[in-house]
Amino acid sequence: MDIVQELLAGSPRALSRAITAIENEYEEAFSIMQKLYPHTGKAHVIGITGPPGAGKSTLTDKLAKKYRENGKTVGIIAVDPTSPFSGGAILGDRIRMNELTMDPGVFIRSMGTRGSLGGLSLKTSDAAKIMDAAGKEIIFIETVGVGQSEVDIVKAADTTIVVLVPGLGDDIQAIKAGILEIGDLFVINKADRDGVERLNTELEMMLDLNQNKVKWRPAVNRTIASRGVGIDELMEKIEEHRTYLQESGELALRRTQRTRDELLALLEEQISRRVTEKMRASGELDFLVASIEQRRQDPYSVVAALLDAYLI
């Protein structure tokens, strides 16, 4: 059996190997994704994002257990930052999820961002698709600890949960652009801390000012994830959001948009790769660089000529 057949038959090792192949861009990655694609599109993808230390891993752990109690299989992708200096990373989210490791209905994979700046790695969406094809019904994607503008998770998730904790900033923070615009649900975690009422009020005010989310008004939930408080209610809200997505047609809209984005990104990537490979192999690249450097040609005309040569 090849890796794709093994994966579809439920082998965790094949699942693991397939993710490595796409993450490292091995040659077989393209054909793996080709064969798996027809088996994707079934899972509900839940994004968990928020600042470092907000409790994203613990919350993911508790929600995953809750979905397991309800008989759902679960995939978890936990993203942590890659060092821009060494290229290395410490991927430490599993520490909070050790109890899930031995559950055969759960598969957890840690990923480094590898240079990507939007809170995910470039291959996170593909990894989620692989888990989807492997039959995981609920897929959690936990982003790196984000600041204000790492919002790639909305492109990958069906339901995005923004996790906050009391005491991080004043009310102007809540009306800035960025991560507070992307939540389908909000969670105030560590809700036994001082400042929870104030943060709750600020979030509610911010949400009341939103003009563009009239059909779905995101709820603000309180949890103490480490003690399992508020998890049942949060899961209910997730399911409510899932129902809303389906019944309003919003899910279809989002997935059309996602398919379009992914197709265009893939096209861009492949065109660029093919043209550069040919240019490198023929030595044309070095020749053109030298000629541009000496101002014998300009880069704009060179690119126009290259596109004519390779694409038409």
Binding site: S86, G87, G88, L91, R94, N98
Partner: peptide
Amino acid sequence: RALRDAGFEVIYTG
């Protein structure tokens, strides 16, 4: 930490 600085991805499980 040393492995991270050497460019490895380290999965730490506690």
